[in-house]
């Protein structure tokens, strides 16, 4: 109990700290970038799996669904091997940079976004298909229409991806290296403080991370609500 009290105290104190500000900003930057990239890839991919019929579709759907549970450490390891100087993309010197962390998180959450979007768009397609085909929409056009019409529900999908990204530590630890002032984010900072045995500070950081996730979700939810009311 005293640990919890101390945690809240350190959360308050460190809320004003400049180092913490940088860590929070980097966390947001990495995870928001990753979610943006993952959404750009995952949403159309999910919609395509919902709309297009082709041989092997079912196998891909199963594979994408299974990849929702990709272990962050494994993704981190693979991205590390790819970006390492000895790896195929070593020449770009991306290892231990925020870019590497963004790549790893994007790989981690793109399947999640694709799988959830596929389910959602497939349900919509059942409702829309005849009408859209009647109006002369080809599958490609239908795909974008469904994504746009499903935008409010798809935001929840994207938020789920963001949640997985911002909370993830295994991948960013490996490809980012938890370098002070360069690649240290909320989760790796929490891991570091935990390994120093400073559980109160670690928990304090954890509380800030949770508050951050809560704030982002609340903001997205409210905007969603307003837009939905305005646009039906």
């Amino acid at each position: 109990m005293s640990d919890l009290t101390a945690a809240f105290a350190s959360a308050l104190v460190f809320g004003l700290d400049a180092d913490l500000g940088r860590i929070v900003l980097l966390s947001l930057r990495v995870s928001l970038s990753a979610v943006a990239i993952a959404a750009i890839i995952g949403l159309p991919l999910g919609a395509a799996l919902a709309v297009f019929r082709f041989p092997g579709r079912r196998a891909i759907v199963i594979a994408v669904n299974a990849m929702m549970g990709l272990p962050p450490v494994v993704v981190g390891l693979i991205v590390y091997l790819l970006l390492s100087r000895a790896g195929p993309f070593g020449v770009f010197g991306l290892l231990f940079t925020p870019t590497a962390m963004i790549i790893a998180q994007a790989i981690l959450i793109a399947p999640l976004i694709a799988a959830l979007a596929r389910q959602l768009v497939e349900d919509m397609w059942a409702e829309y298909e005849e009408q859209l085909r009647s109006l002369g929409a080809g599958a490609g056009r239908a795909l974008w229409t469904l994504l746009w019409d499903g935008r409010f529900s798809l935001l929840t999908v994207v938020l789920a991806g963001f949640g997985r990204a911002i909370a993830e530590v295994g991948a960013v630890m490996i490809v980012g290296g938890n370098i002070d002032q360069v690649t240290r984010v909320m989760t790796t900072a929490i891991a570091l403080e935990t390994s120093k045995g400073d559980l109160a500070l670690a928990l304090g950081l954890g509380i800030i991370l949770i508050a951050l996730a809560l704030a982002i979700n609340a903001t997205a939810f409210s905007i969603n609500l307003v837009l939905r009311e305005r646009q039906g």
Binding site: E130, S134, L135, W148, D149, Q231
Partner: peptide, 13 residues
């Protein structure tokens, strides 16, 4: 063109 028993409205104006 075709009009269906239950119209499908797109989420827009």
């Amino acid at each position: 063109a075709m009009v269906f028993q239950r119209p499908v409205m797109l989420r827009r104006s």
